[in-house]
């Protein structure tokens, strides 16, 4: 993980989707290039940061991982508010998880009013043999709601980096669109975003481990 620096713009991306579709695994693969067969279900949101360079420009992503199960749905707004991007992740072998995406999309469209870039993600393409949702179906759906579409496998590390590049490019395009429309407002926003970025993961990790209470 890299430390936040003061001069790259920060984008907030939230990972949403039904339980066990691979939200945490995608994040783990992207941040640490690992896959954990024994990982635990996520009961509390967490986030990670990573810098990447797109079109010669370095940006920082604040990626939020959330708990997927429907009972924790009401916590969603706390985490997706203020996001410039959302990945709606489903499991290509699980029809139910695809249906669940649609609820999220509806909610995000109403709440974020098109301010966020949406990327529908079909995960677990390594299990193509048991695929339930055809790529065309999902692509068509994504198009119909103005979202981007991508497929990947966190387990086999297929197209994970591409996911984040795709969404980042779209977020950057949207941001420059906004700044052309309203240069002042956008500038002010990005400045203040930089100032709240004070976390430095290396420091946090280096905190005295024994001293807890």
């Amino acid at each position: 993980m890299e430390a936040g620096t003061s001069d790259s713009p920060v984008f907030k991306v939230v990972l949403l989707g039904e339980g066990a579709v691979g939200k945490s695994s995608i994040l783990l693969r992207y941040i640490e290039n690992k896959f954990n067969n024994k990982h635990l279900s996520t009961t509390q949101a967490s986030f990670a940061t990573r810098k990447l360079t797109v079109n010669g420009k370095t940006v920082e992503l604040n990626i939020w991982d959330t708990a997927g199960q429907e009972k924790y749905h009401s916590l969603g707004p706390i985490y997706y508010r203020g996001s410039q991007g959302a990945m709606l992740i489903y499991d290509i072998t699980d029809t139910r998880s695809f249906e669940r995406i649609k609820n999220w999309v509806r909610e995000l469209q109403e709440v974020l009013k098109g301010t966020a870039t949406l990327l529908v993600v079909g995960n677990k393409v390594d299990l193509d043999a048991t695929r339930q949702i055809q790529r065309e179906t999902a692509e068509e759906y994504a198009k119909s709601v103005g979202a981007l579409y991508a497929e990947c496998s966190a387990k086999e590390n297929i197209d994970i980096d591409a996911l984040f590049e795709t969404i980042t490019k779209a977020m950057m395009a949207k941001a420059s669109e906004v700044s052309t429309l309203n240069r002042g407002a956008s500038l002010r926003r990005s400045t203040s975003r930089r100032t709240i970025q004070v976390s430095d993961d290396t420091d946090t990790e280096a905190a005295p481990k024994k001293k807890c209470c």
């Binding site: 707004p77 203020g82 909610e107 109403e110 709440v111 407002a185 002010r188 926003r189 400045t191 203040s192």
Partner: peptide, 21 residues
Amino acid sequence: TDHQLQAMVNLDPVVEDETLR
């Protein structure tokens, strides 16, 4: 939850503006 969600949705939140915060 649906009602609460609807209530949240109704908030019509605007993009945060740190300078005013």
